[in-house]
């Protein structure tokens, strides 16, 4: 398969992720959308690495996965705390930090 197909897939996934972050109200969905964006980048990284014949991109993918896992752990912990307080995961309901 040509490189452009991988890049196209990566772009589509990324846009879907962005749309999810911007439009969804449920915090968990937003989280999943962020994960989608990260993985879209992973696809691109792996494709470019393969194309150029280097290993750097593929190793970087592992880093991204590790960071994504850590981020998910922290983020979920925060949302559990918020859920205990507000009984909701709707991000439009959560605006304590406004002026």
């Amino acid at each position: 398969m040509p490189l452009v197909a991988y890049i196209g897939l990566s772009a589509i996934l990324f846009v879907i992720g962005v749309m999810g972050v911007l439009l969804k109200r449920n915090a968990l969905t937003i989280f999943m959308s962020i994960e989608l964006m990260l993985n879209a980048v992973n696809v691109a990284l792996a494709a470019f690495a393969r194309h150029h014949g280097g290993l750097d991109g593929q190793i970087f993918v592992f880093f991204v996965m590790t960071v994504a896992a850590a981020e998910a752990a922290v983020g979920l912990a925060i949302f559990i705390a918020i859920f205990r307080l507000k009984k909701t995961t709707d991000v439009t309901e959560i605006n304590l930090m406004r002026w």
Partner: peptide
């Protein structure tokens, strides 16, 4: 400037985007 400080995550995300 405080008007931008809405507290809404989605607004922040939009401005980042």
């Amino acid at each position: 400037l405080k008007l931008f400080q809405t507290g809404s995550v989605r607004a922040y995300a939009l401005s980042v985007f």
